[in-house]
Design a protein around this nucleic acid. Structure first.
Lengths: 214, 214, 214, 214
DNA sequence: GATGAATGAGGTTTCATTCAT
DNA sequence: CATGAATGAAACCTCATTCAT
């Protein structure tokens, strides 16, 4: 990758990394270009060699992380796991992102949202991106469910699209309350409890019983 | 216009109403005091007769809406409805408010978050308030469920606290995706579908059957 | 004095008294009309029934206190004391004003000065008033000295005008350093020491010896 | 204009110089940052690259002038002059500076006072600095007098500390009245007259006579 | 006469962006 | 390419003053 003597893309990511760190701590509106520059250990003016504006930084940051998650989603879909395993894995992906570093990233997400809901120029782009992300996210669950129905893992009469919405909304809700509520709900227990509720409704027990016989 | 005797509280609410309108459109950081003043049709300085600072405005706005919802919650709890009806009513309350108040509240919520992160001092107060609100919201559902279990409306072995969390998270999630997704999910269908899933898990069919016999 | 049902002058003085209290604590520029009104226990608007503007308040305050001192000076001059006693009395007047309440008044004086040295409208009037006051103050000492020379209390060859300047400058200097220096010089000792130095230079010992013979 | 390599200290002083000019004319509270910027021929924002706040400007201004005088004082103390010459030099320093620096300083002094009263925090620092300055100033005269007594130039029985206070107060007073009185007293004459009075009291004539014999 | 709600001019300060080096 | 000094628009907020009651 580092074939050229200078790699513009790498430096961009370096700046985004620095920006993310500060955004998480102080929020988008609480962060100054100076702080980002200092954190990235470069001059203030240099930032403008790589980004058109402050808005461009947050938007690029957003895109970077969204795409990272997208890639993970695609990997799951394309994996050789069976639908039930895929469903668990997908939820786990979500749960994992709530630990450690990623917990902070979620806070970043709130900033994205705050910017997105407004009418502003950048907001619209955000909203479109977030919408796409949600669609994709729901599509992932939808696809997994359809696969499961086809293969007999899940009950035939369930509405995969509807269930996908319920699952994503639930995960979103847990996330929101977890972060807002200052970790006062035990999200892991909640998710487990939720999964069991959901699974009870959709999993085709007979099929799975047969499977395990083999 | 100034025929009535001077009512400080009314004027405060009038300003909050104007502020809300602009906050929702442009976000807290994108809104100026001048704009609020113009929207409220008063002078810039007048705002400061009723609020200590811009932060105070958003905080008061937040409190106003939170308390409005609180009052409604309390009414439901204290009503003469049976637990199942209460549960339906509580969710309906939520659905209803999605068209009016709560829709605003959610959009403001992101701002609250942005402010909470930027300004440590006020941020803490915000998070405590949000936390309290969530607790109260969960407590409402918890109480309804406990009443229902006692009276035999709901199954004995369910964990009311856990179910309350699931319900509130779900509603929160639906709301978030509804607002973010620009009405691209049909929330009413989703909620109906969700209710049926939940009810399947908790409602004691035998008891309700007996009831309907009478 | 309270013959008329309403005494405008009295109310003015009442406001000045309140203003003085706040001016001393917070300085002219640190004091707001609201504070003065609250201290005087009247409405903000009422102040403008008695004073044209904030500047007018400080100017009137200044005039009031200056005139009080003027009256005292005149009393001393017109008293039946002998020149040496008058000189002592005049300095004592000064020393007295450095105690108790009056010490605070001196701080007010600094505000007058701060306003006076500037080019502003009110500053000019102040400067003229202060100048007049200084002149009068020096004139008092000058007159006392001339009386003393005439009557043989003081040496014939001294320049009364010059000595008056030295005395007033000295007193002014002590005052400044006392207030600025946060009472870290013992002004009473200093003044005593200064008086003895001055008296050594001007008092006609022979005459006083003769006097005390009688 | 910007040919020289960038000198932060120089620019600070340049701004201070501009600020001083306006402060003297209009007073601290009457001066706006815009005016200072215009006078210094720079942008408003540039000021804040060199000073934290408006308060910081006045405080730095104060420190600059105080320190300039301090340096001069130290030079005199450390010079090879004899005590009597030092005393004359010290007073001369004072007289000289009345035409230049000190005249500014006194006018600013009233502003310092006004700020000291208005803003408790910064006010304390000011008073401490002023106090230190006065102490140092008195110490200079004290030291000169002690040297003089030791070497026989001044009378043995005088109290050097007390005399130092008298001298500094006197000079301070002359300065104040000079500035306030709008040059209406002839300070040079007054100082000469004062010196002769003081010297009469402290100089050891016999010793000086002997000295001049040699 | 007395009031205090309303006002808006004008103050300080921040910070994204530019541009000469 | 990199820099950071310079900038000024625009924000928040204060407060002397007005005026309807």
């Amino acid at each position: 990758m580092r074939s050229k003597p200078f790699d513009k893309e790498e430096k961009r990511n370096q700046i985004i990394k620095a920006a993310t760190k500060i955004f998480i701590k102080k929020g988008f509106f609480g962060t100054t270009i100076s702080e980002i520059a200092k954190e990235a250990d470069i001059g203030k003016g240099t930032i403008y060699e790589y980004f058109k504006s402050k808005d461009d930084i947050i938007f690029s940051t957003f895109s970077l992380y969204i795409n990272n998650i997208r890639k993970k989603i695609e990997k799951i879909i394309e994996s050789k796991l069976n639908p039930k395993e895929k469903l668990e894995k997908a939820i786990t992906l979500f749960v994992e992102s709530m630990n450690k570093e990623a917990d902070k990233l979620v806070k970043l997400m709130f900033d994205f949202w705050a910017i997105a809901v407004k009418e502003r120029q950048i907001g619209k782009s955000f909203l479109i991106e977030i919408n796409n992300f949600y669609k994709q996210y729901r599509a992932m669950f939808s696809e997994i469910l359809i696969q499961g129905i086809k293969n007999g893992y899940f009950k035939k009469y369930i509405n995969p699209h509807q269930q996908a919405i319920i699952i994503t909304c639930m995960l979103d809700g847990i996330l929101t309350q977890y972060v807002m509520g200052n970790s006062c709900i035990k999200y892991q227990e909640t998710i487990k409890s939720f999964i069991s509720t959901i699974f009870k409704g959709i999993v085709n027990e007979q099929h799975n019983l047969l499977k395990s016989y083999k």
